[in-house]
Amino acid sequence: MPYIAAAARREQIYALTELGRHTEAEALARYALTSYREPDPLRLSLRLGLAHSLSSQGRHAEALAEVERAAVLRRNLAREHHHVTIGGVELAAATALLGLGRGTEARPRVAAAYDACLSAFGPGHYRTRKARALLDRINGA
């Protein structure tokens, strides 16, 4: 049950963020992270959801700190779990870096995220489209 509840909360976090309800998404992400402590891909995606909600609030330094925690977790995951998070850490990092005015650092990260997502998921996937949009924004298109 804890896994199912955390997975449902993850989807709520992303939905709230997309609806522009960033403080609610942040609160739910923080709650989910205190409730679900397994060092697995789900926890990683909860961290990334928190990072996205923070970036959406303009709190880019805090978002980048969450991305760094997510990157540590990803490094510790077994290789067979990495497909779940393809491009996610890089996309969240690029978003935070761009928000901090560090576009030159953000560009290679989002380009890598886009390439990885395009290869793994195709052009219509949510994460691929988000990476493409951020890359276009950085490139001024």
Rank of each mutant, 00 (worst) to 15 (best):
G103H: 00
S56A: 15
H60I: 05
Y126E: 15
A92Y: 01
A116T: 05
G124I: 08
E18L: 07
A111D: 11
L134M: 10
A70H: 06
L44M: 08
A133I: 08
R30S: 14
L44I: 05
Y3M: 06
S119T: 15
A120Q: 10
R74A: 14
L135A: 00
L54T: 05
L50N: 05
A111R: 11
P41S: 11
L118M: 09
R47S: 02
R79C: 02
A93N: 01
R79G: 09
H125E: 15
V110M: 03
R43E: 06
G122A: 13
Q12Y: 08
R129S: 05
R102N: 03
E90Q: 14
R127W: 07
L28G: 14
G124F: 09
L42E: 05
E68R: 09
A120S: 07
R10S: 15
A5C: 10
A78G: 06
G99R: 01
E26A: 07
C117S: 07
E80K: 10
T23P: 03
A32K: 01
A6Q: 00
I4Y: 10
T128L: 02
A116P: 00
E11P: 02
R75F: 05
A113D: 10
A111L: 11
G88H: 07
L46P: 03
D40G: 01
A92E: 00
G87W: 02
Q57N: 12
M1L: 09
S45V: 10
H81S: 13
P108T: 01
R30E: 15
T128C: 00
Q57I: 07
A111Q: 15
I138T: 04
H125L: 08
L42D: 03
L42N: 06
R127P: 00
A106F: 00
R59M: 10
A25D: 04
R137T: 15
R10G: 04
E62P: 02
L118H: 09
P39D: 11
D40A: 09
A94M: 05
L134G: 04
A133P: 12
T95N: 04
F121T: 08
A7N: 15
E38V: 12
L118A: 02
Y31N: 12
V89L: 01
R21L: 13
A96N: 08
G58W: 05
A133E: 15
E66D: 13
G88M: 02
P108S: 04
R75H: 15
R69G: 11
E18K: 11
F121C: 12
P39K: 09
L50T: 00
L64K: 03
L48Q: 00
H125D: 14
L135R: 02
